[in-house]
Nucleic acid binder design. Structure first.
Lengths: 117, 117
DNA sequence: TTTGAATACCTCACAGTTTGATGTTGACAA
DNA sequence: TTGTCAACATCAAACTGTGAGGTATTCAAA
Protein backbone atom coordinates (compact mmCIF):
# COMPACT_ATOMS: atom_id res chain seq x y z
CA UNK A 1 0.00 0.00 0.00
CA UNK A 2 1.77 3.09 -1.21
CA UNK A 3 0.88 6.70 -1.71
CA UNK A 4 1.28 6.13 -5.41
CA UNK A 5 -0.97 3.07 -5.25
CA UNK A 6 -4.08 5.04 -4.42
CA UNK A 7 -6.08 2.20 -2.90
CA UNK A 8 -8.95 2.48 -5.29
CA UNK A 9 -11.06 0.04 -3.35
CA UNK A 10 -12.11 -1.96 -6.34
CA UNK A 11 -11.05 -4.98 -4.33
CA UNK A 12 -13.22 -6.79 -1.86
CA UNK A 13 -13.12 -6.01 1.82
CA UNK A 14 -12.81 -8.64 4.51
CA UNK A 15 -12.90 -11.54 2.07
CA UNK A 16 -9.27 -12.56 2.17
CA UNK A 17 -9.15 -16.30 2.79
CA UNK A 18 -12.91 -16.65 3.06
CA UNK A 19 -13.27 -18.76 -0.11
CA UNK A 20 -10.95 -21.42 1.25
CA UNK A 21 -12.84 -21.52 4.53
CA UNK A 22 -16.21 -21.86 2.84
CA UNK A 23 -15.11 -24.43 0.26
CA UNK A 24 -13.63 -26.66 2.95
CA UNK A 25 -16.72 -26.25 5.09
CA UNK A 26 -19.04 -27.25 2.26
CA UNK A 27 -16.94 -30.29 1.39
CA UNK A 28 -16.97 -31.35 5.04
CA UNK A 29 -20.68 -31.98 4.64
CA UNK A 30 -20.64 -33.92 1.39
CA UNK A 31 -18.74 -34.26 -1.86
CA UNK A 32 -19.51 -31.52 -4.37
CA UNK A 33 -18.34 -30.26 -7.75
CA UNK A 34 -17.01 -26.84 -8.57
CA UNK A 35 -19.98 -25.26 -10.24
CA UNK A 36 -22.19 -26.56 -7.44
CA UNK A 37 -19.93 -24.97 -4.85
CA UNK A 38 -20.12 -21.58 -6.56
CA UNK A 39 -23.92 -21.75 -6.50
CA UNK A 40 -24.08 -23.15 -2.96
CA UNK A 41 -22.07 -20.23 -1.57
CA UNK A 42 -24.51 -17.82 -3.19
CA UNK A 43 -27.66 -19.56 -2.03
CA UNK A 44 -26.56 -20.57 1.46
CA UNK A 45 -25.42 -17.05 2.26
CA UNK A 46 -28.57 -15.58 0.69
CA UNK A 47 -26.50 -13.82 -1.97
CA UNK A 48 -24.47 -12.01 0.68
CA UNK A 49 -21.33 -13.74 -0.56
CA UNK A 50 -20.56 -14.67 -4.13
CA UNK A 51 -17.20 -15.87 -5.42
CA UNK A 52 -16.68 -16.22 -9.14
CA UNK A 53 -15.65 -19.41 -10.87
CA UNK A 54 -12.34 -17.68 -11.53
CA UNK A 55 -11.78 -17.82 -7.79
CA UNK A 56 -13.22 -21.23 -6.91
CA UNK A 57 -11.78 -23.42 -9.66
CA UNK A 58 -8.16 -22.41 -9.10
CA UNK A 59 -8.76 -22.87 -5.39
CA UNK A 60 -9.95 -26.43 -5.89
CA UNK A 61 -6.84 -27.19 -7.93
CA UNK A 62 -4.66 -25.76 -5.21
CA UNK A 63 -6.48 -27.70 -2.50
CA UNK A 64 -6.04 -30.91 -4.42
CA UNK A 65 -2.35 -30.26 -4.96
CA UNK A 66 -2.02 -29.75 -1.22
CA UNK A 67 -3.91 -32.99 -0.55
CA UNK A 68 -6.60 -31.13 1.33
CA UNK A 69 -9.21 -32.54 -1.03
CA UNK A 70 -9.29 -35.39 -3.52
CA UNK A 71 -11.36 -35.60 -6.67
CA UNK A 72 -13.00 -38.12 -8.93
CA UNK A 73 -14.77 -37.89 -12.25
CA UNK A 74 -18.41 -38.84 -12.16
CA UNK A 75 -21.19 -39.01 -14.76
CA UNK A 76 -24.47 -37.76 -13.35
CA UNK A 77 -27.66 -36.77 -15.16
CA UNK A 78 -25.90 -36.90 -18.49
CA UNK A 79 -23.26 -34.52 -17.12
CA UNK A 80 -19.59 -35.11 -16.53
CA UNK A 81 -18.46 -33.60 -13.28
CA UNK A 82 -15.40 -33.39 -11.05
CA UNK A 83 -16.49 -34.22 -7.54
CA UNK A 84 -14.26 -33.13 -4.68
CA UNK A 85 -14.13 -34.57 -1.19
CA UNK A 86 -12.36 -33.52 1.98
CA UNK A 87 -9.30 -35.48 3.13
CA UNK A 88 -8.21 -35.91 6.75
CA UNK A 89 -5.63 -33.21 6.11
CA UNK A 90 -8.38 -31.00 4.74
CA UNK A 91 -10.44 -31.49 7.86
CA UNK A 92 -7.52 -30.36 9.99
CA UNK A 93 -7.07 -27.28 7.83
CA UNK A 94 -10.77 -26.53 8.10
CA UNK A 95 -10.56 -26.69 11.89
CA UNK A 96 -7.53 -24.40 11.91
CA UNK A 97 -9.13 -21.90 9.54
CA UNK A 98 -12.37 -21.91 11.50
CA UNK A 99 -10.45 -21.17 14.69
CA UNK A 100 -8.60 -18.38 12.91
CA UNK A 101 -11.83 -16.87 11.61
CA UNK A 102 -13.27 -16.93 15.13
CA UNK A 103 -10.13 -15.33 16.51
CA UNK A 104 -10.21 -12.49 14.00
CA UNK A 105 -13.92 -11.94 14.56
CA UNK A 106 -13.33 -11.76 18.27
CA UNK A 107 -10.48 -9.32 17.83
CA UNK A 108 -12.57 -7.03 15.68
CA UNK A 109 -15.50 -7.29 18.09
CA UNK A 110 -13.26 -6.36 21.02
CA UNK A 111 -12.10 -3.17 19.39
CA UNK A 112 -15.36 -2.23 17.70
CA UNK A 113 -17.34 -2.84 20.86
CA UNK A 114 -15.61 -0.10 22.85
CA UNK A 115 -17.63 2.96 23.87
CA UNK A 116 -19.42 4.50 20.94
CA UNK A 117 -18.55 7.91 19.52
CA UNK B 1 -4.43 -17.15 -7.69
CA UNK B 2 -2.70 -19.45 -10.11
CA UNK B 3 -1.31 -22.95 -9.99
CA UNK B 4 2.13 -21.45 -10.42
CA UNK B 5 1.51 -19.03 -7.56
CA UNK B 6 1.58 -21.69 -4.86
CA UNK B 7 -0.29 -19.80 -2.24
CA UNK B 8 2.31 -20.13 0.45
CA UNK B 9 0.06 -18.74 3.13
CA UNK B 10 2.64 -16.44 4.57
CA UNK B 11 0.03 -13.75 4.14
CA UNK B 12 -2.73 -13.00 6.57
CA UNK B 13 -6.14 -14.56 6.38
CA UNK B 14 -9.35 -12.63 6.79
CA UNK B 15 -7.59 -9.33 7.42
CA UNK B 16 -8.28 -7.63 4.11
CA UNK B 17 -9.66 -4.18 4.90
CA UNK B 18 -9.62 -4.70 8.66
CA UNK B 19 -6.93 -2.06 9.32
CA UNK B 20 -9.05 0.66 7.76
CA UNK B 21 -12.07 -0.40 9.79
CA UNK B 22 -10.17 -0.41 13.07
CA UNK B 23 -8.30 2.84 12.45
CA UNK B 24 -11.53 4.67 11.66
CA UNK B 25 -13.21 3.15 14.69
CA UNK B 26 -10.43 4.25 17.01
CA UNK B 27 -10.42 7.77 15.62
CA UNK B 28 -14.20 7.96 16.09
CA UNK B 29 -13.57 7.85 19.82
CA UNK B 30 -10.80 10.44 20.07
CA UNK B 31 -7.89 11.91 18.13
CA UNK B 32 -4.82 9.69 18.12
CA UNK B 33 -1.38 9.52 16.53
CA UNK B 34 0.00 6.72 14.40
CA UNK B 35 2.23 4.96 16.84
CA UNK B 36 -0.53 5.11 19.43
CA UNK B 37 -2.96 3.49 17.00
CA UNK B 38 -0.57 0.62 16.32
CA UNK B 39 -0.29 -0.06 20.06
CA UNK B 40 -4.00 0.44 20.70
CA UNK B 41 -4.95 -2.20 18.16
CA UNK B 42 -2.66 -4.66 19.88
CA UNK B 43 -3.82 -3.94 23.40
CA UNK B 44 -7.53 -3.52 22.74
CA UNK B 45 -7.69 -6.81 20.87
CA UNK B 46 -5.56 -8.53 23.52
CA UNK B 47 -2.80 -9.15 20.98
CA UNK B 48 -5.20 -11.03 18.72
CA UNK B 49 -4.68 -8.45 16.01
CA UNK B 50 -1.48 -6.58 15.29
CA UNK B 51 -0.78 -4.45 12.24
CA UNK B 52 2.71 -3.16 11.67
CA UNK B 53 3.64 0.46 11.30
CA UNK B 54 4.33 -0.33 7.66
CA UNK B 55 0.60 -0.91 7.31
CA UNK B 56 -0.83 1.82 9.53
CA UNK B 57 1.26 4.83 8.51
CA UNK B 58 0.56 4.51 4.79
CA UNK B 59 -3.09 4.01 5.66
CA UNK B 60 -3.22 7.25 7.61
CA UNK B 61 -1.68 9.08 4.67
CA UNK B 62 -4.24 7.58 2.36
CA UNK B 63 -7.11 8.43 4.71
CA UNK B 64 -5.95 12.01 4.93
CA UNK B 65 -5.65 12.30 1.17
CA UNK B 66 -9.21 11.04 0.89
CA UNK B 67 -10.37 13.57 3.51
CA UNK B 68 -11.55 10.80 5.79
CA UNK B 69 -9.29 12.11 8.52
CA UNK B 70 -7.45 15.36 9.14
CA UNK B 71 -4.22 15.83 11.04
CA UNK B 72 -2.38 18.38 13.10
CA UNK B 73 1.09 18.53 14.57
CA UNK B 74 1.18 18.63 18.33
CA UNK B 75 3.95 18.80 20.93
CA UNK B 76 3.16 16.60 23.91
CA UNK B 77 5.46 15.41 26.68
CA UNK B 78 8.47 16.70 24.82
CA UNK B 79 7.38 14.65 21.82
CA UNK B 80 6.33 15.81 18.40
CA UNK B 81 3.34 13.88 17.13
CA UNK B 82 0.91 13.84 14.21
CA UNK B 83 -2.58 13.62 15.66
CA UNK B 84 -5.38 12.42 13.39
CA UNK B 85 -9.09 13.02 13.78
CA UNK B 86 -12.11 11.70 11.96
CA UNK B 87 -13.95 13.95 9.50
CA UNK B 88 -17.67 13.78 8.71
CA UNK B 89 -16.74 11.91 5.56
CA UNK B 90 -14.68 9.51 7.64
CA UNK B 91 -17.63 8.85 9.92
CA UNK B 92 -19.73 7.91 6.92
CA UNK B 93 -17.05 5.57 5.67
CA UNK B 94 -16.79 3.99 9.10
CA UNK B 95 -20.52 3.34 9.13
CA UNK B 96 -20.37 1.79 5.66
CA UNK B 97 -17.40 -0.39 6.52
CA UNK B 98 -19.00 -1.50 9.76
CA UNK B 99 -22.13 -2.52 7.89
CA UNK B 100 -20.00 -4.39 5.37
CA UNK B 101 -18.10 -6.21 8.09
CA UNK B 102 -21.40 -7.26 9.68
CA UNK B 103 -22.71 -8.44 6.33
CA UNK B 104 -19.67 -10.58 5.64
CA UNK B 105 -19.74 -12.02 9.16
CA UNK B 106 -23.36 -12.90 8.72
CA UNK B 107 -22.71 -14.53 5.38
CA UNK B 108 -19.94 -16.66 6.79
CA UNK B 109 -22.04 -17.58 9.81
CA UNK B 110 -24.92 -18.67 7.58
CA UNK B 111 -22.77 -21.08 5.64
CA UNK B 112 -20.60 -22.26 8.51
CA UNK B 113 -23.60 -22.82 10.73
CA UNK B 114 -25.13 -25.49 8.53
CA UNK B 115 -25.30 -29.05 9.87
CA UNK B 116 -21.94 -30.26 11.11
CA UNK B 117 -19.92 -33.00 9.44
C1' DT C 1 -33.21 -26.89 -36.46
C1' DT C 2 -30.87 -23.47 -34.79
C1' DT C 3 -30.90 -20.33 -31.26
C1' DG C 4 -30.16 -19.41 -26.61
C1' DA C 5 -29.77 -20.30 -21.86
C1' DA C 6 -27.88 -22.99 -18.34
C1' DT C 7 -24.41 -26.29 -16.93
C1' DA C 8 -19.53 -27.23 -16.26
C1' DC C 9 -14.96 -26.55 -16.75
C1' DC C 10 -10.77 -23.55 -17.40
C1' DT C 11 -7.08 -19.46 -17.56
C1' DC C 12 -5.06 -14.96 -16.76
C1' DA C 13 -3.98 -9.78 -16.43
C1' DC C 14 -4.97 -6.59 -13.08
C1' DA C 15 -5.29 -4.03 -8.88
C1' DG C 16 -4.93 -4.10 -4.49
C1' DT C 17 -3.25 -5.21 0.37
C1' DT C 18 -0.38 -6.62 4.39
C1' DT C 19 4.15 -8.17 5.76
C1' DG C 20 8.67 -7.59 7.18
C1' DA C 21 12.77 -5.36 6.49
C1' DT C 22 15.03 -1.17 6.68
C1' DG C 23 15.95 3.60 7.84
C1' DT C 24 15.81 8.08 10.44
C1' DT C 25 15.55 11.10 14.53
C1' DG C 26 15.03 12.04 19.29
C1' DA C 27 14.28 11.07 24.45
C1' DC C 28 15.70 8.97 28.50
C1' DA C 29 17.61 5.47 31.61
C1' DA C 30 21.46 2.32 33.07
C1' DT D 1 27.55 5.85 25.77
C1' DT D 2 25.02 2.24 25.17
C1' DG D 3 20.59 0.48 24.64
C1' DT D 4 15.71 0.82 24.50
C1' DC D 5 11.63 2.88 23.32
C1' DA D 6 9.00 6.45 20.88
C1' DA D 7 7.61 8.26 16.46
C1' DC D 8 7.75 8.68 11.83
C1' DA D 9 8.57 6.82 7.15
C1' DT D 10 9.35 3.88 2.68
C1' DC D 11 9.27 -0.20 -0.23
C1' DA D 12 10.02 -5.00 -2.42
C1' DA D 13 7.83 -9.18 -2.05
C1' DA D 14 4.10 -12.34 -1.83
C1' DC D 15 -0.66 -13.29 -1.74
C1' DT D 16 -5.54 -13.12 -3.64
C1' DG D 17 -10.23 -12.02 -5.53
C1' DT D 18 -12.25 -9.79 -9.74
C1' DG D 19 -13.81 -9.60 -14.20
C1' DA D 20 -13.22 -10.87 -18.60
C1' DG D 21 -12.36 -14.24 -21.71
C1' DG D 22 -12.46 -19.04 -23.51
C1' DT D 23 -14.28 -24.11 -24.51
C1' DA D 24 -17.78 -27.76 -24.64
C1' DT D 25 -22.20 -30.06 -23.57
C1' DT D 26 -27.24 -30.40 -22.68
C1' DC D 27 -31.84 -29.21 -23.48
C1' DA D 28 -35.90 -26.40 -24.24
C1' DA D 29 -38.05 -23.04 -27.14
C1' DA D 30 -38.92 -20.74 -31.53
Amino acid sequence: MYDNAPMKKTNPSFLNGVPELLVLRLLARREMYGYEIVKAIQSETREILSFGEGCIYPYLHYLEEEKLVSSRRKEVEGRSRNYYQLTARGKKRLDALTAEWNRVSEGVALLMGGQHA
